[in-house]
């Protein structure tokens, strides 16, 4: 007790100074709004960084465990896939909701160009596997393109990255739709045209297929809005869309087989006549 008192007598000024500064600091951040905001921001940035670091560390420590479980999962899936290839034909029905309107045919991409103005993909799946012209081609992350010519064992695809490719796309949650075309040299950016300028869109919105053609099912994710503007004198947006899938880094795709396509086309042609 005596020692504590001695400390107070000896260092009292310094302690008082520190105590006052702490009181002021609390006062400043609690009463002055601007200072409080700055304090809270700084604090949250700091703690976020700290949390991220700790998360990274713990993730790293868990890697071994995750590797093990992934290897086991892989082995199990290989088992299933190989068995299925033996027992069933190549086309698998994946969609069970829409009366199985769509079935998907897995296909490997055997050849592709990316850096030309008009690119073509070739799939290792042809008539034998059920491929037809004007079928949609999708990947697990987004859409790829549309088939044009089909031979016995191969099919040619006009991918998104082609000056003539036109995909009907809409903004998720809105019913406005437009044409998705490739204008830039960048294989990750597409342009969405003909969306009227009264549509309330913002950067980061998801672009999905509209389903207004018979080629793609509706609401397949394509990409997000990275930028948009209204051209002078136009009433439509010009929207830059960042694709979800990197077509450059794609080795596997699925052909979309719309079983009701002919029915729909027949009906629509009837109306024309």
């Amino acid at each position: 007790m005596k020692n504590i008192l001695l400390i107070f007598i000896k260092y009292g000024t310094h302690l008082l100074f520190i105590a006052f500064q702490i009181i002021f600091f609390t006062l400043i951040i609690n009463i002055n709004r601007v200072h409080g905001d700055i304090y809270n921001n700084t604090k949250s940035i700091f703690f976020e960084n700290l949390n991220n670091k700790v998360d990274q560390l713990s993730d790293y420590l868990k890697l071994d465990e995750q590797n093990d479980s992934l290897a086991r999962e892989n082995a199990r899936l290989m088992d299933v896939i190989i068995n299925q290839r033996i027992n069933t034909p190549k086309s698998i029905l994946l969609d069970t909701l829409l009366l199985q309107q769509y079935s998907f045919i897995p296909a490997e991409i055997c050849n592709k160009t990316i850096h030309l103005r008009n690119n073509y993909f070739t799939l290792c799946a042809g008539k034998i596997d059920g491929a037809k012209p004007m079928m949609g081609v999708i990947s697990t992350e987004g859409i790829v393109g549309i088939t044009t010519k089909v031979s016995e064992n191969y099919s040619q695809v006009i991918p998104l990255l082609h000056s003539q490719s036109r995909i009907s796309a809409s903004i998720k949650g809105l019913h406005f739709f437009g044409n998705l075309v490739w204008k830039e040299a960048n294989p990750r950016i597409m342009t969405l045209e003909a969306v009227p300028k009264h549509a309330a869109i913002s950067i980061g919105d998801t672009i999905v297929t509209s389903g207004y053609s018979s080629i793609f099912p509706r609401d397949l994710p394509i990409g997000t809005i990275v930028n948009f503007e209204i051209a002078k004198g136009s009433s439509n947006y010009v929207i830059d869309v960042g694709l979800f899938n990197d077509l450059n880094n794609l080795s596997y795709a699925y052909l979309v087989n719309n079983k009701l396509k002919e029915e729909q086309l027949n009906l629509e042609n009837d109306i024309d006549e």
Partner: peptide, 15 residues
């Protein structure tokens, strides 16, 4: 009406 800012500086000056 800037609670603690002047006081903080002045206490530091006195210190």
């Amino acid at each position: 009406s800037s609670y603690g800012i002047h006081a903080s500086a002045l206490v530091f000056t006195a210190y």
